[in-house]
Design a binder for these strands. Structure first.
Lengths: 372, 372
DNA sequence: GTAATCTGGA
DNA sequence: TCCAGATTAC
């Protein structure tokens, strides 16, 4: 059986808002690690992957792996019946054909309970290839949303070009052409070496395979310490996505990270936002978050609420063209996290990743061919 | 070539919101004085005239007169891509077929650049007849908007009647008749004599013919000083539209204006709003604004944000009927200025004028015949 | 074609 | 703050 209690129903509500227009039905794959959802969009162009980690729940129990086939429109309706700050418990018996949702108001005695029909869905949980990316852009999620929405007024598709100067979003349309250039906040972005950076972790993590990641993580760390501090920073930033796994590394003195080692509090959090822009302190921020995660999830979640600046990590110049319609859709996830990461390599699908403390939502979108 | 930099893109955005439903394509006539736009509405019933004065720009350069034929829907889209507080630079090369717009975010490194196709438009820049008006009503733009929107719920057209008692907006509809009477805030409005008041300046200014106006102004002033202080005041209120030209009159002691001579600061600005309502201090307010304009356009612009009261200046009773649909459309400009002026004479088009510091937007609407 | 969401006005 | 028209998704 499954029983998972969320501190706030809002997380689930936002998640559904973020995917319901992309996918109609999907399996919530539940196991002891947490809950995974993976689905192609209705036109099989984009892939969305959601992870809710078990430790992120106020209470979590899942005796055996079970897929819960859910109609997302139905679940959205049911979740509309929850207030944002309600405690939300989802339950399903083994082999059950209903999902039980209980909403408990924080300060009153209201208890609402809903049963939603489940359905059988062919689980085409295609393993997501573990890709190394040549470019990673980290930016405010609202800004990303703004840009793709703006450009979608002009044209159908956008060319995203990452270079040392920054990242350029360009779209050509009937009436007008548009181009938005974001310069990296702290000069030139750090360039992670592909063979030793941590981007592969992202692919691994997308598979929810924690043990492997932890080991890979250790391996990388060793490499990193052998190589350059600069790479460290880049890598650590990625590790944010592995918070649970590398918690043992918290506060470990590494390179030039020292000055913000204890940035657990609000004050240093503010500093961090600025510092984060240089791709250095972000590591510590993440590490600190990682440790604080067990204690106070809320703080962790708000970590990147007001992310500012643009971090560009580049191994190789990339230029790819994507359908704006999908990117606009992806950007709905901005309510979940103030920060978004765009991972790109030439001729492979773009990965758009939002991390929100209890997990992540990731979108994969194949580039348009011809690069026009 | 043209290169014009606006401190805030919002001005342009609001202007386009105000006219895009009235006109589909229009020429932006650029010359060293600034940018003019003049166009009939799509059904050739109303005329809209926009002026953006060169000094109102943060930077302005226009080597030679050039018309930029713009599709307003396209421009609206492109302007949607600007944040309100972005710095906005519009550029066009001589004989160019594209308009280049650059948005620079105030505090970040975002630079967005858009190229919009231009088109050839027959420039039917009909000289607007320089009309003397028998009545001028100055009121809060939100109030005007509210009244015409209210009445548009009842009927198709509105009869606007200006008399000593005030201004009446009356509409007859199927289900109900409505009538809104606004009394002048300070009892009876001052009545400018037609032959010596300044309303004709407005018509002249609409043509951008500054020299003539200045002379006319001087002539009037002479007459006014011969006649009554009261008329003076009325005249000065109009001169707000000629701020650049009559700057030499600033702070000139005249009649009972003394007490607010130096009302350049915020505090006296508030006082002014109240006093303005009696149609007396409005003169001083305008004069003060006139001088402040050269130094600090911003303050001038906010001058009438919270305009209160109703000023009626009347030479002769007027009663005219207009289509509410258009007036509702005109009232969209209320976001540009807290104050609106309605200028009327029997059987000639109504002039609805919004001044916003960097220029104005004016609408002309022919009355319905039969006065029903 | 219908329904839901979003923006702008009351 | 709530309601309605407009836009967009299904």
């Amino acid at each position: 059986m499954l029983e998972a209690k969320l501190q706030e129903a809002s997380v689930l509500k936002k998640l559904l808002d973020a995917i319901k227009e992309l996918v109609t039905d999907a399996n919530f794959e539940c196991n002891e690690e947490g809950i995974n959802l993976q689905a192609m969009d209705n036109s099989h162009v984009a892939l969305v992957a959601v992870l809710l980690e078990a430790p992120g729940f106020k209470r979590y129990r899942c005796d055996r792996p079970m897929p819960l086939g859910v109609n997302l429109a139905s679940l959205t309706k049911v979740l509309k019946c929850a207030k944002d700050d309600d405690e939300c418990t989802i339950k399903a018996a083994d082999e059950a054909d209903v999902l039980n949702l209980v909403y408990e108001a924080k300060h009153t005695d209201r208890i609402a309970e809903y049963d939603m029909k489940l359905m059988d869905i062919d689980s085409d949980t295609l393993g997501i290839p573990e890709t190394d990316y040549d470019a990673r852009v980290t930016m405010a999620s609202v800004e990303f949303g703004r840009i793709v929405r703006d450009l979608s007024l002009l044209g159908e598709s956008v060319r995203i070009e990452v270079s040392k100067e920054g990242v350029r979003f360009a779209s050509d349309g009937e009436a007008a052409n548009g181009s938005v250039l974001l310069k990296p906040t702290e000069g030139v972005g750090k360039v992670p070496k592909k063979d030793e950076d941590s981007e592969e972790e992202q692919g691994e993590e997308a598979n929810g395979d924690d043990e492997d990641e932890e080991q890979a993580e250790d391996g990388k760390k060793t490499k990193k310490e052998k190589t350059k501090v600069k790479k460290e920073k880049d890598t650590e930033d990625v590790e944010m996505e592995d918070e649970e796994e590398n918690g043992n590394e918290d506060f470990k003195p590494e390179g030039d990270d020292d000055e913000e080692k204890n940035s657990d509090d609000e004050e240093s959090g503010k500093k961090r936002k600025k510092k984060q822009a240089n791709g250095t302190s972000s590591k510590k921020a993440k590490t600190a978050s990682s440790s604080s995660k067990g204690k106070g999830k809320k703080k962790e979640k708000d970590d990147d609420k007001d992310f500012e600046g643009v971090i560009i990590e580049l191994n190789q110049h990339v230029s790819l063209t994507f359908s704006l319609k999908y990117l606009v859709n992806f950007s709905k996830s901005q309510s979940l996290c103030g920060k978004v990461q765009l991972m790109m390599s030439n001729d492979v699908p773009l990965l758009v990743s939002y991390e929100f403390g209890q997990g992540h939502i990731r979108y994969y979108l194949a580039p348009k061919i011809g690069d026009d």
